[in-house]
């Protein structure tokens, strides 16, 4: 039976588990980073989990997803195996990008997950182009593109929105507004701080939503996705959220107050959703405990897979620069 938010116990459990997995997976990643198992840049999504969860639950498997370098949660939500992601972060060839990408470049073509893009805003034009292809090929899938509010200052954001609107292609632009681009706050970088006001300049319907509340996000995402699908036109959804952790592991967080972070942590989307489910009797305490246990096994499995993973041979170094099986 579905409640007024269109939730039944099965879906409720799935979504809660997904968010818990994202959180635990990244906490584990941070730990493994300090142990130098994971190297390079590592950008955590902790605090923002409701956004990826709320948006991706509204999609079909054939819809394309593009994300940033802060994309572990998106990959998990899309169903990329936690172990394969972890192996990628270890740099092992069992990883989803053969270990060649690392944390910032998770790709899984089969799952229609197109990265893992680390040039800020660089993937927005790609999203517009992929949606254009869907239109030309008369596919009924849509493209969803995640990016930060920092990216919305880039020319490529504006160019991509303009073209998407001009060409009338089915792309959902999802701005994850966590208020900071590295250490520079929104107020120092945008003359008009409501990002949702930028869509209408290009004739794109736009909406802002509370990014800390999964229920509100699901409602907004369902509507936005449905609209993009039926109209075949772009839409801009701005999710106002906050990252609880540093920008990356190299960030001393000199630019914001601890009190501000603590204030936002009170709005943590995960306990909020869990509380709601318990209140609505969509889940039981016993079930929650069972989920936590399953979670630990899942994380352990992921780490084991990564640990057992193997290094690609040096002789393979120059592979994949050009296609190995060019299609004639």
């Amino acid at each position: 039976m579905k409640n007024k938010n269109n939730l039944d116990p099965e879906k409720a459990e799935k979504l809660l588990f997904q968010m818990l997995l994202m959180r635990k997976f990244e906490e584990k990643s941070a730990e493994l980073y300090t142990k130098e198992k994971i190297r390079g840049f590592l950008h955590l999504y902790i605090g923002e989990e409701a956004v990826a969860t709320g948006i991706i639950q509204a999609l079909k498997p054939e819809d394309y997803i593009l994300a940033t370098y802060r994309e572990h949660a998106h990959a998990l939500a899309r169903g990329v195996d936690a172990g394969v992601i972890m192996a990628e972060m270890y740099g092992k060839q069992e990883g989803c990008s053969r270990g060649r990408g690392g944390s910032m470049h998770l790709f899984d073509k089969e799952k229609n997950f197109f990265g893992g893009n680390a040039i800020v805003s660089g993937h927005l034009p790609l999203a517009t182009g992929m949606a254009l292809a869907s239109k030309k090929l008369k596919r009924d899938n849509i493209t969803v593109c995640f990016f930060g509010e920092g990216a919305a200052a880039e020319g490529e954001f504006h160019e991509a929105l303009n073209l998407a609107s001009l060409w009338k292609v089915p792309v959902l632009f999802v701005c994850e507004n966590n208020l900071y681009a590295m250490g520079t706050a929104l107020r120092y970088t945008h003359a008009v701080q409501e990002i949702e006001k930028k869509g209408p300049a290009y004739g794109i319907e736009s909406k802002a939503v509370d990014g800390m509340d999964l229920l509100k996000l699901m409602e907004a995402a369902n509507k936005a996705v449905e609209q993009v699908r039926s109209s075949g036109e772009p839409y801009l959804l701005v999710c106002n959220t906050y990252r609880f952790r540093a920008h990356s592991m190299f960030d001393a967080e000199l630019y914001r107050d601890k009190t501000e972070v603590e204030k936002w942590k009170k709005r943590d989307p995960i306990p909020k959703f869990r509380k709601y489910l318990l209140k609505e009797n969509l889940i039981s305490e016993a079930k929650v405990q069972e989920l936590e246990k399953r979670l630990n096994t899942e994380i352990q499995k992921a780490v084991d897979l990564a640990e057992a993973g193997t290094w690609e041979a040096k002789e393979e170094l120059t592979r994949f620069v050009y296609s190995e099986n060019p299609v004639s």
Binding site: R39, G40, G101, M104, A118
Partner: peptide, 8 residues
């Protein structure tokens, strides 16, 4: 840098 991969 330090294992920053292809784009960095």
């Amino acid at each position: 840098g330090k294992q920053l991969a292809a784009q960095h």
